[in-house]
Amino acid sequence: MRRSALFVCSTAHLPVTERRHIDHLIAAAPRGAGGRIDVGHPDLVIEPYAYGFFVHTCVVGCGGEAPEISPEFWAILTYAFERDASWVLFDRDEPASPDLPVFPDPDRPEEHQS
C-alpha cells in the first residue's frame, strides 16, 4: 500500500484554450461499460468532475519529454508528482493561487475579479 496526495488547483491556472479543449473532450467522450466516461486525451488520464476535472500525474513519471500541453500545465503536474500526488483536481470554484499564473476566461467575468 502507498500513501498518495491530491492537489487541488483552480482551472484559472490553465490557459483558456487548454481548459476549453479538455472540457470539449469531456463533453464529447463516450460512456463505457458501467457508464464511465472515457476521456480520449492521447497523453493524459483525465476524469471528469462536476466542477472541473482530475488529471493523473503518471505522465510525469514516464520520463521523456512533456506531452503537447502548456508549460504551465506541465509545471503543475510535475510539482504535484514530485510531492507524491497521484492526481491534480482542477476545480472551477477553487480560488486562484498567488504563486501561479492566472489565465482569465473572457467568457467568465467572475475570473477577472480579485
Rank of each mutant, 00 (worst) to 15 (best):
T17A: 11
P42R: 05
C58G: 14
M1T: 15
P104L: 04
R83C: 02
V8M: 05
H21R: 14
A85H: 10
Q113R: 14
E18G: 08
T57P: 14
E72T: 03
V88M: 02
I26F: 09
F7Y: 14
V59S: 12
H21S: 14
V59C: 14
L6V: 14
R31S: 12
H21K: 11
A75M: 08
F53T: 01
Y49L: 02
P15G: 00
T78F: 03
R3K: 06
D43E: 10
D107Y: 09
P30Y: 01
G34D: 09
C62V: 03
G40L: 12
G64T: 07
G61K: 08
A33K: 06
G52V: 05
L89I: 01
R83G: 00
I26N: 10
D43R: 03
R36L: 13
I46W: 05
A50K: 08
R2M: 11
P42Q: 03
G32N: 11
S114Y: 03
E94G: 00
R19H: 07
P42M: 07
E47A: 01
Y51C: 11
G64E: 06
R3I: 10
A85N: 09
A66C: 07
D23N: 12
A27P: 03
E94Y: 05
E110W: 15
D23C: 07
W74L: 06
A28N: 14
P67H: 13
C62K: 15
Y49G: 01
E82V: 00
V59A: 15
L89E: 02
F81K: 02
R3Y: 06
V55L: 01
H21F: 11
P71T: 08
V55G: 01
I22G: 01
C62D: 09
V88N: 06
H56K: 12
